[in-house]
């Protein structure tokens, strides 16, 4: 039977090296995706990825029994990413139409377009950059709430635990983020539901 995340963190505290590696295996992609979307920079996201797991390792003994690992992990990641973003004093990224701009990671992780028409691929790439730019334009905490909710499916309660705030505050962050995005995102012509 597969061990739970909580069992693994407990095993890690006891000195089981395999347990930590398994946690990295389970949450690596998820965490990196979160950090890339929230920071808008692949390079910065990879640094934060390492820092997050290293902090998980160093704080493993403080993980309370009965808690859930995933929100705890995202809490650490959110704190690190907010600090990181504030330090880098990022401005909304404006990505040129050609090239990777400041988001090489976003480009490299995006699956190649399956469209046979070269124009379709270029348009999709441009839209992705616009979307990433719009998300980057959000204030940090709104950005974190949006990414955790929309891309990672965390409940408001889990997001609240990750961001160390009340669930109502999470709703407010989400609402403001989405309203802002509604103004920043372009209309999708001819693609209404």
């Amino acid at each position: 039977m597969q061990k739970t995340d909580e069992d693994l963190i407990a095993a890690h505290v006891q000195g089981d090296q395999k347990a930590f590696a398994e946690l990295v295996n389970r949450y690596g992609k998820l965490l990196l995706g979160y950090l890339v979307r929230i920071s808008g920079s692949r390079e910065q996201a990879e640094d934060m990825f390492q820092e997050t797991f290293l902090r998980v390792h160093s704080k493993a003994t403080t993980f309370r029994e009965g808690s859930k690992f995933k929100p705890w992990l995202f809490r650490i990641a959110t704190n690190i990413s907010i600090d990181g973003i504030r330090k880098s004093k990022r401005r909304p990224v404006t990505v040129p139409l050609e090239g990777h701009g400041d988001n090489p990671g976003a480009e490299s992780d995006i699956l190649p377009s399956r469209s046979p028409l070269p124009d379709d691929g270029a348009m999709a790439s441009e839209r992705k950059q616009i979307v990433q730019g719009a998300i980057n334009a959000l204030p940090t905490r709104q950005r974190a709430a949006l990414v955790l909710s929309y891309y990672h499916g965390l409940t408001h309660k889990e997001i609240a635990e990750a961001m160390q705030c009340a669930p109502g505050t999470v709703k407010t962050h989400l609402s403001r983020a989405l309203v802002a995005l509604a103004k920043l995102l372009p209309d999708m012509e001819g693609e209404t539901a």
């Binding site: 995706g33 976003a106 979307v131 989405l178 372009p186 999708m188």
Partner: peptide, 22 residues
Amino acid sequence: KLKAKFSSLDLLNVEMVVPQNL
């Protein structure tokens, strides 16, 4: 229209590849 607009958020919904050396 709003739903269509927000559907563009899914463009970033791709699985990340974690580099092995990392």
